[in-house]
């Protein structure tokens, strides 16, 4: 067991340093790349906290959808092959539910403020979000 700080805390500390101290002292291309770097760390931070549960949910849905066992990558490759071969209909409700839930979880880590994410949450899941 690793000592404190946690991985998420280490990432947060570096991101906060970039955002509140370093970026203000930089200019031009370097400042731009530092903002990109802070944004990349924010993705890492969210993935550390939200990723394990999202992966677990995605794996469970894939097993039920495909009636297969395996790890997340194997199952995703099997789903790709199945869609490509036409073995699963594009409008299969279980497929729709799975792809919607997995993609929402992915974008919530990659770009939680992305406009298309809010649209998907309200239009595809029926859930209402601010």
């Amino acid at each position: 067991m690793m000592d404190q700080p946690s991985l998420a805390e280490i990432i947060r500390a570096v991101r906060t340093f970039l955002e509140t101290k370093a970026i203000g002292e930089l200019s031009g291309h370097t400042a731009f790349h530092a903002r990109v770097a802070a944004n990349a760390l924010a993705i890492a931070e969210r993935e550390v906290t939200q990723g394990p549960q999202a992966d677990q949910n995605e794996t469970a849905r894939l097993k039920a959808l495909l009636h297969l066992e395996g790890n997340l990558e194997t199952l995703n490759r099997a789903l790709c092959a199945s869609i490509r071969a036409g073995a699963i209909a594009l409008d299969d409700p279980q497929l729709k539910e799975h792809l919607t839930a997995s993609t929402i979880a992915k974008v919530a880590i990659d770009q939680p403020a992305y406009s298309g994410l809010q649209i998907a949450r309200s239009a595809l899941t029926g859930a209402s979000h601010p």
Partner: peptide, 8 residues
């Protein structure tokens, strides 16, 4: 990591 925006 912007590929996922196109997926949604």
């Amino acid at each position: 990591r912007r590929a996922s925006e196109t997926e949604v």
